[in-house]
Design a protein around this nucleic acid. Structure first.
Lengths: 343, 343
DNA sequence: GTTAGCACTCTCCGCCCGAGAGTGCTAACC
DNA sequence: GGTTAGCACTCTCGGGCGGAGAGTGCTAAC
C-alpha cells in the first residue's frame, strides 16, 4: 500500500471517527462543517476521491457520502490509531470488581465477559483458563451403589475435569479411595505421558483408570472452547447495520458453531500473552463475518494456565476504546492469575 | 372461562395450527378452502367472531384475518393439545447421542441444549445438575509458593466447586494436605449445617476453612443459574416476528440477565421432576417477553441432583412438538442420572 | 495546488391509487 | 333457530410518481 499524505490520513481518520459515531455515510460538506479543516469542500472532495481509488473508502451511491472499507479500517488501526488507555476511573472500577470476585475462580470469567461487553458495547467472549500442558495433581473416585464411578481429576492450576465410567465389576468406596490415593501418589506432578508411564505396577482397575486419566489430560492439552462464556450479544443487535436481522442471525449462528470458535480462539492464542489482535471483516476467512470485527487477546500466567478473551462487534466499531478495554482486562486477569498460581 | 362448543374448539385449533405454520393471520375463507369443514364461510365467521369476543382470537385490522391471543394459546395448550410423542426414529437418534456422551458429564448439558434447540427450532436453556441439598464429600487444598490456596470442594453427586483464598500465613503443601484430609474425614456425608458443627476441634486454619466450605455449600444449595448452557439463539431470530430486531434484542437481553434467569429457573424447578411447564407470553410477569413463550421442565435424580431445562421461542410456536422434545430430553437425562448416581 | 460554481445523479419520503383479502350485516332458507 | 348467500365496506399492501435533500465530478478561475 502506498503512503498517504498527512492530510489524507487526517481525513481518513475523521471519516472513520464520524462514521463510527453516526453510522451514516460522510460527505465532504459534513466533514467541513463539523471539523472545519483549513481547506474548502472541493479540496476535501479531491482527497476523498483519492482515498476511494486507493481502496480505503467506498461510495455506495453516486451521491451518498463515503464509508470506510475494511482496508480503510485496517490502515486506520495499523497506522493511525493513537494508543489510548481506559480512563483511570473506569480502570479503578473494573479492578475493584475483580478484586471483589477474587475468591471465586469461575466468577472471573463471567466478570471479564460482562466488563468487556459493557465497555466495548459489543459481544464478548472469554474462555476459562486452562493449562497449556496439563499436569496431574489429584484423583478422586466417587462410587455409587452400582458399577458407575465418577472420576474427578484435579490438574495443576486448579483445572478440574469430571468423567463418568462404568467398571466391569462393583468396588467398595474404600477400595476406590485407596486406588485413587495410590494413583495420586504415583502420578502427582506428571504430564500426560508421565502419567501413562506409571501404569506398570497397577492392577487392571488401576491401569484402566490411568488410561482414562491420560485421555482426559490429552483433551485438556488441546486448545478448547469447552468452557466459554459470552455476554452482550444484545449489544450487537442494537447496531443499525444488523437491523435486517439476517446478517445478525448469521453472526449469532457463527457464535454457536464450535468449529468456528475453535479456529478463532486458536488465532487469539497464537501470539504471546498481552498482545492484542484485531481481525477486521473476517479477513476473507469467514464469509459470514463480513460486517463484523473481532478484537482478541490471550491472558494468563505463562507456564501455568492461559485463556483467550475478546470482543465481537460490527466492523463499524470504536476500535480505540475496544482495544484499550481488551488489553486492560487481559492484563488484569493475567496479573490476578500470576498472583494466584505463581505465588 | 366459559366452555366452547366442539366446533369452536376445532376452529381455534385449526387457526392456531395454520398460524403457527404460516405466520400470517387466518381468514374464514382460507380456513374453509384448506380444511373444508362441513359449513360455510359465514358460519365460520360467526364462530370466529364469538372466539374473538371470548378473548381467544384477535383481529389486528378490520379486514385482516385473525390471530390467536395469548389466552387462545393457553386454552389450546391446556385443553386441546393432543399429547404427542417424538417420532421413534428421532427418539432413537437422540438417545444414541446421549449414549455416546455418557462418560462426559459436562457434555450432557451441552448436548441437551443442542438437541432441544434443534428439535424445537428455538432457543434452549439447560442448567448443569446440582444437588438440591449439598452433601460434603471431599476437600482438596492446592497451595502455591505464596499464601494463596485453591480450595477444591467435591460434593456428593459430583458437583465440584473451586474457591481461591489467601491465608494469613504460608503453609507447606504437606500441612495443607493433612488438614484437608482431616476435614474430609470429619465432614464427609454431612450437609452445610453438619459441616459447620464439626468446626470445634480444629485449629484456626481448619475453622476458617470450614467456614468457607459451609459458605460455598450454602451457595450451592440455592437455586442457581451459575452454570447455564444455551443454544439455538439464532433460531429465534429466524422468525419473522423478530424481523424488526428490537423485540429480538429485548428477548436476547433478558437471557443475559441473571436475575431473570434465576426467576425463570426457580419457576421451572418448582413442580416435580417430569412435569412440563408452559409459560405463554410472559404471563404478565415479564413485560419484555410479550412475544415469547417458554416450555420448561426439571430433570435429575431426586435426592441426588437436579437441574432445569427448557426452550424459549416465539409465542407462535409449535407447542406440541416442543413439549414432546422437552419432556423426552428431561426424561432421558433423568434416567441417565438415576443410572449414574443411584446405581 | 486550491477554490467557486454548476449541472447531474442518487436516495428517501410522502402521496395516491388500485388490487386483494376479509369482515359484518341483512335477508332468505331449511 | 341455526345456517347460508349476497353485498357493501374497510383496511393493508405494493407500485408508481415527484419533489426535496445531499453529494459528487467537472471546469474554469485564482
Amino acid at each position: 500500500m502506498e503512503e498517504l499524505t498527512e492530510r489524507q490520513e487526517t481525513i481518513l481518520a475523521l471519516i472513520i471517527h464520524e462514521y463510527v459515531e453516526t453510522g451514516e455515510p460522510i460527505g465532504s460538506m459534513t466533514l467541513l462543517g463539523r471539523y472545519g479543516l483549513g481547506v474548502s469542500s472541493a479540496t476535501i472532495r479531491n482527497e476523498m476521491s483519492a482515498l476511494t481509488h486507493a481502496g480505503l473508502l467506498r461510495q455506495l451511491h453516486t451521491s451518498g457520502g463515503r464509508t470506510p472499507t475494511e482496508e480503510g479500517y485496517r490502515y486506520f488501526v495499523r497506522r493511525l490509531l493513537t494508543e489510548t488507555e481506559l480512563p483511570s476511573d473506569e480502570k479503578r472500577l473494573i479492578s475493584h470488581q475483580f478484586y471483589q470476585a477474587r475468591a471465586d475462580v469461575d466468577e472471573w470469567v463471567r466478570l471479564a465477559a460482562s466488563v468487556l461487553a459493557h465497555h466495548s458495547r459489543a459481544a464478548s467472549l472469554v474462555t476459562a483458563p486452562h493449562s497449556s500442558r496439563a499436569v496431574f495433581k489429584h484423583l478422586e473416585l466417587i462410587g455409587t451403589q452400582g458399577r458407575q464411578v465418577l472420576m474427578v481429576i484435579v490438574l495443576q492450576g486448579g483445572d478440574v475435569r469430571q468423567q463418568m465410567l462404568t467398571l466391569a465389576e462393583a468396588f467398595s468406596q474404600e477400595v476406590l479411595s485407596q486406588t485413587a490415593a495410590h494413583i495420586t501418589a504415583a502420578c502427582a506432578g506428571r504430564d500426560a505421558d508421565g502419567v501413562a508411564a506409571e501404569a506398570g505396577p497397577f492392577s487392571e482397575l488401576g491401569r484402566e483408570l490411568i488410561r482414562l486419566i491420560t485421555e482426559v489430560m490429552r483433551r485438556a492439552d488441546a486448545v478448547s472452547s469447552g468452557d466459554l462464556h459470552h455476554d452482550g450479544l444484545s449489544n450487537v443487535l442494537a447496531h443499525p447495520e444488523f437491523a435486517q436481522s439476517d446478517t445478525a442471525r448469521q453472526a449469532l449462528r457463527l457464535l454457536e458453531e464450535r468449529s468456528f470458535l475453535d479456529e478463532v480462539l486458536a488465532k487469539a492464542l497464537s501470539p504471546g500473552i498481552g498482545s492484542v489482535q484485531v481481525v477486521i471483516g473476517g479477513e476473507g476467512a469467514w464469509e459470514e463475518l463480513r460486517d463484523c470485527s473481532m478484537v482478541l487477546a490471550r491472558y494468563g500466567a505463562a507456564g501455568y494456565a492461559t485463556g483467550a478473551l475478546g470482543v465481537l462487534g460490527p466492523t463499524r466499531m470504536a476500535y480505540g476504546r475496544t482495544i484499550s478495554a481488551v488489553r486492560y482486562v487481559a492484563g488484569l486477569m493475567s496479573d490476578l492469575m500470576v498472583e494466584a498460581y505463581a505465588g
